[in-house]
């Protein structure tokens, strides 16, 4: 049941600076740039790098340097996104935005990029980290993070949801649909599939 033959799933590739770009900003959902996120021979200093420390004690950056090789550390993903929105709003044409992290993070970055006017040609994503899924309940619209099983209970409406391979780039989430809609109560055993 894990391979559902879905052809529309996004695909990812290790990152390298796009030579046609003028400025390269890499946002990472971790404290360091994971080596597997970069193409062979590419070093993190080719980008201006933003990372997430997930702790309160981060070095303060009085005046953030916006140049290749500079690193800015954020307390949390939310903290990084807030700064990213501000940054994109005042950026000029020529920027290339790169992201490395789990799938929901990548598409949350895309949502902000698209809102700022970036096109797919101006962005690149590398998927690294856990494969746990963000699930959107198509019935009650509750979003649940970190789902690792084929079937789980929606915390919003209590429905037993089957985790489809159908990924929404807009919502940055996979679709969850009621698994016992035909015969209420007939819920197959959940399998641990996404970790």
């Amino acid at each position: 049941m894990s391979d559902q033959g879905m052809k529309s799933r996004p695909t990812y590739a290790p990152l390298a600076p796009d030579p046609s770009g003028r400025h390269h900003l890499l946002v990472v959902e971790a404290a360091e740039v994971p080596a597997e996120a970069l193409a062979e021979g590419v070093v993190p200093s080719a980008f201006e790098v933003w990372t997430v420390a997930r702790r309160s004690a981060v070095p303060s950056a009085p005046a953030m340097e916006e140049a290749p090789g500079s690193v800015a550390i954020f307390r949390s993903v939310t903290h990084l996104f807030s700064a990213l929105e501000e940054r994109l709003a005042r950026e000029t044409m020529g920027l290339r935005l790169y992201a490395a992290g789990a799938e929901p993070f990548l598409w949350d970055v895309w949502g902000r990029a698209e809102k700022a006017g970036l096109s797919r040609q101006e962005t690149a994503f590398a998927e690294v980290g856990p494969k746990a899924r963000r699930i959107y309940c198509v019935h009650c619209r509750t979003v649940t993070e970190g789902v690792t099983t084929s079937i789980f209970t929606c915390p919003g409406c209590g429905a037993s949801l089957f985790v489809r391979d159908h990924f929404s780039r807009r919502l940055a989430a996979f679709m969850g649909v009621q698994v016992d809609a035909e015969v209420p109560g007939e819920v197959p055993e959940a399998e641990e599939l996404y970790a």
Binding site: E91, L95, L118
Partner: peptide, 9 residues
């Protein structure tokens, strides 16, 4: 002119 245009131009 081209260098100062905002993203999405």
């Amino acid at each position: 002119l081209l260098a100062r245009q905002p993203l999405g131009t």
